[in-house]
């Protein structure tokens, strides 16, 4: 099992200017903000289940950019159908990273479905994702980073993480600000 904060930091260490990120609510938002609060991050603070389809719409609109959806197991479980829609759309520039601590950290650490039999990487494979990697060790993290940063999508990486909570690094909650800032960063607003 990996430390989520360190894993996300190592994942984004070599992030280029062509990588756009959408985060799922809760800890993935804090993990990405803890690396760097950037204009080309769009943080969700609610809309649970919406991170993957939002990243899909962005990836389809910006085929020249790499779009990363960084989300959690609980958030993804609420919108599993989105994986099937990605599997149909086959965006080559979309990568999904699930930080899977098998628990709902925001609500007291109750077990999520991934603590049982359901396996998000296998679900993504069955939905038609090109490749998936599940990382439990540092060396597997290298493989995961290569996949989500470079491989032809859609791809999905699962970071199996310790259940422990980290300091909450809270980016802006002003949705209008986040939207305008993001659109300016990708040239969507004159």
């Amino acid at each position: 099992m990996l430390d989520r904060r360190k894993a996300v930091k190592s994942l984004l260490a070599q992030r280029g200017g062509d990588v756009l990120i959408v985060t799922g609510l809760g800890s993935p938002t804090y993990d990405v903000a803890a690396v760097a609060d950037r204009a080309d991050n769009f943080y969700l603070w609610s809309a649970m289940g919406g991170a993957v389809p939002m990243a899909l719409g962005l990836a389809l609109a910006q085929p020249g950019m790499r779009v990363l959806c960084v989300t959690g197991d609980g958030e993804l479980l609420m919108g599993l159908g989105g994986l099937a829609s990605v599997g149909v759309a086959q965006p080559r520039n979309l990568a999904i990273v699930v930080i899977d601590n098998e628990a709902y950290g925001e609500t007291g650490g109750q077990k999520s479905h991934t603590a049982g039999r359901p396996d998000l990487a296998q679900i993504a494979s069955a939905c038609g994702f090109q490749r998936t990697v599940t990382a439990r060790t540092e060396s597997e993290m290298t493989e995961l980073r290569n996949l989500v940063m470079g491989a032809e999508g859609p791809v999905l990486g699962v970071i199996k993480a310790n259940a422990g909570e980290h300091e909450r690094v809270l980016p802006s909650r002003d949705g209008h600000f986040l939207r305008q800032r993001f659109k300016q960063a990708v040239g969507g607003v004159p």
């Binding site: 959408v22 919406g50 829609s85 969507g188």
Partner: peptide, 17 residues
């Protein structure tokens, strides 16, 4: 698969211009 996805997808399209 469900209309809920479409709300987020169209919002993502707007982010991408």
């Amino acid at each position: 698969t469900t209309e809920e996805e479409g709300v987020a997808l169209i919002a993502g399209a707007d982010l991408g211009g």
